[in-house]
Design a protein around this nucleic acid. Sequence first.
DNA 1: CGGTTGTTTGACGCCCTTCAACGAGCGTGG
DNA 2: CCACGCTCGTTGAAGGGCGTCAAACAACCG
Lengths: 243, 243
Amino acid sequence: MLNCRDCPLHAHDVFVPFSEEDFEATQMLKVGEMQIEAGTPLLAEGARAPQLFTVREGMGLRYKSLPSGERQVINFIFPGDFLGLQAAVMGEIQYSVEATTDMKLCVFDRASLWKLFRISPERGYDLTWMAAVDEYMVAEALTAVGQQDATGRVAWGLLRLYNRAASVALVRKKDGAAPLPFRQQDLADALGLSLVHTNKTLTRLRDNGIADWSKGWLRILDREKIIEMAGADGAQPLNRPFM
Amino acid sequence: MLNCRDCPLHAHDVFVPFSEEDFEATQMLKVGEMQIEAGTPLLAEGARAPQLFTVREGMGLRYKSLPSGERQVINFIFPGDFLGLQAAVMGEIQYSVEATTDMKLCVFDRASLWKLFRISPERGYDLTWMAAVDEYMVAEALTAVGQQDATGRVAWGLLRLYNRAASVALVRKKDGAAPLPFRQQDLADALGLSLVHTNKTLTRLRDNGIADWSKGWLRILDREKIIEMAGADGAQPLNRPFM
DNA sequence: CGGTTGTTTGACGCCCTTCAACGAGCGTGG
DNA sequence: CCACGCTCGTTGAAGGGCGTCAAACAACCG
């Protein structure tokens, strides 16, 4: 089992460095590792998962389904994301998580989560911080979906995905492209747009030399422009702890 | 200064009861009280507020502004809400909070928040819980705004507002009406709809005997129907701690 | 090579936005 | 006491952005 000290996630600047105590407390909570294949559901709405996960490799989707059968993608999952915290503290899972690519996960015991707060107040603080960052990201999505038109939303979505990929060093050196293993339908469900209109908007962004997402890779061609279209400041993802 | 033991918020079932230690730890962090008038900004985007607030009385809005001048209402503020946690852990405020009615607040010192985790692991755990609940609520809003049409969104918004008011005993006995001091523009900005269309949808709900929001009071006329229209289960707001 | 999944493109229509104007309520000042 | 201005709610008309329907294309796979 990989020692937390050797976790490759520490290499990335977005993540706040661990102290000696952080390593010990985190290691104590870790109960194992897990690998799942692309397409596998990891958490399901309404279920009672006894585990918490940190994503070490791979990407996925977090979404909520409606009675009508549609779904809202709440967030895209990247390495460093911590899954199940909401379920752990609130008692029941309110959303589903699915692996889009193969994933490697670290597994933590949900029942002993509260112990972490006692063993290491610093790590407890970090958990609150992580929850706050999650809320911030969802609130940003809500703002984009609620206030922007289709072009703005797609621009915002691509920029967010690119920045998140870049923050964990997934960008390809030779051409600055980020891997994006999702379907257009996934982006459409995240932005509250129809598949068809999402597709047409992506085509327009490509033709206009703004951004090109094809064959699973995303390149930002005009960063200035897409930031403006996304109604965003150019800020990179905020620093945050991970588990 | 009101002692935490005498806080009227304890009367409501939505809130998890305090233990003896919870009282002590909370009281220790409390530095004062504050009253503000309707219309006053409480927190402003980009600012560095040194304080945290628990709403004891009154209602407000939490929103994010775009460069274009529009705003997305992230959530409506009710008694029991804890404000500024995100700012405290993430370092900078990402949204604004405004009082819609007069408000009474308890004030906590931001700088000593991290101490709380050391003094009382239970309260630290509660803070994470509260942050998770916040994220859950924003995610629900995102789902409504992203996947529902105007009727569904307005139904969802009214139902959410009614339930939140009911959970802190704001419902008027004689006719089951909840006070709703907001403007139609506020609801429109929360749902990503234009003011005009929000108004027309509200009129339709009223004419169809679903819900009646007028003169600042909201009555749910057909609970079954509005739950179905909102694409929600009939679940009441989740139990949660408060500060 | 047929089946499946995902992308692309065109046509059509409606839900919602925008523009515009009026009414209601209320506080202020003459 | 009424006039005036301001905010908020209400209503009608017109136009377009985006959803829906439909079908073809591309890639992959057993």
